[in-house]
Amino acid sequence: MLRLSKRLWHWFTRPSVLIGQGVLLLIGGIGGIIFWGGFHTAMGATNTLEFCISCHEMRDTVYQEYKASAH
């Protein structure tokens, strides 16, 4: 088992153009998915009325105007 894992690690890290680009593409794709998921979650959490009026400045001034407007 140890010999197989060493061979697999060597195959994955050897300086081959095709393998190197594949590993870079794989890491970039996984990193992009993780970044997109985190960004989407953060935007969803901060895009609520409760989050916006949690600041005392927003709740005391702007939110009162917002409630009276046509929005």
Rank of each mutant, 00 (worst) to 15 (best):
G38R: 03
Q21V: 13
G29T: 04
E65P: 00
L26F: 12
I27W: 07
G29S: 05
W36E: 05
V62Y: 08
F12H: 06
G20S: 04
V17H: 01
H71Y: 12
G32V: 04
Y66E: 06
H56L: 08
L24H: 09
G32T: 03
W11P: 02
E57L: 13
L25Q: 02
T48S: 13
L8P: 02
T41Y: 09
L25C: 08
F12M: 14
Y66A: 10
G44C: 08
S54K: 14
E65V: 09
H71Q: 10
V23R: 02
G29N: 07
L24D: 05
G38E: 06
F39P: 00
W11C: 10
M43Q: 12
V23G: 01
H40I: 11
G44W: 01
G31L: 05
G32S: 06
E65K: 10
G37R: 12
D60I: 01
L18Q: 04
W11L: 15
N47K: 11
Y63Q: 02
F39V: 06
S69A: 15
A70C: 00
K67R: 12
G38Y: 02
G28Y: 07
T46R: 03
L49I: 15
W36M: 07
V23K: 01
E57S: 11
E50R: 15
V23I: 15
W9L: 08
Y63D: 02
F51T: 14
Q64W: 06
K67P: 00
L2P: 02
A68N: 08
I19L: 08
G22L: 06
H40V: 09
W11F: 15
K6M: 07
T61M: 09
W11K: 11
R59P: 00
I33E: 04
E65W: 07
A45F: 14
H40F: 08
L18F: 10
L4T: 03
I33F: 10
A70Y: 00
E65F: 08
S16K: 01
M58L: 12
M58G: 01
G22H: 01
T13Y: 03
G44V: 05
V62D: 07
R14M: 04
H40E: 07
L25G: 03
G44N: 10
G44K: 03
S54M: 14
G38L: 07
L8R: 14
T13S: 10
E50C: 03
W11H: 11
K67L: 15
L24W: 05
W9G: 02
Q64K: 15
F12R: 07
H71A: 12
S54I: 05
G29K: 00
I34P: 00
P15R: 01
E57N: 13
L8K: 12
E57A: 14
I19F: 09
C55T: 07
G32Y: 04
Y66Q: 03
Q21C: 11
R7A: 11
W36Y: 11
V62I: 13
A70P: 00
L25T: 09
G22N: 03
C55V: 10
G31D: 03
G37C: 12
T46L: 14
P15A: 05
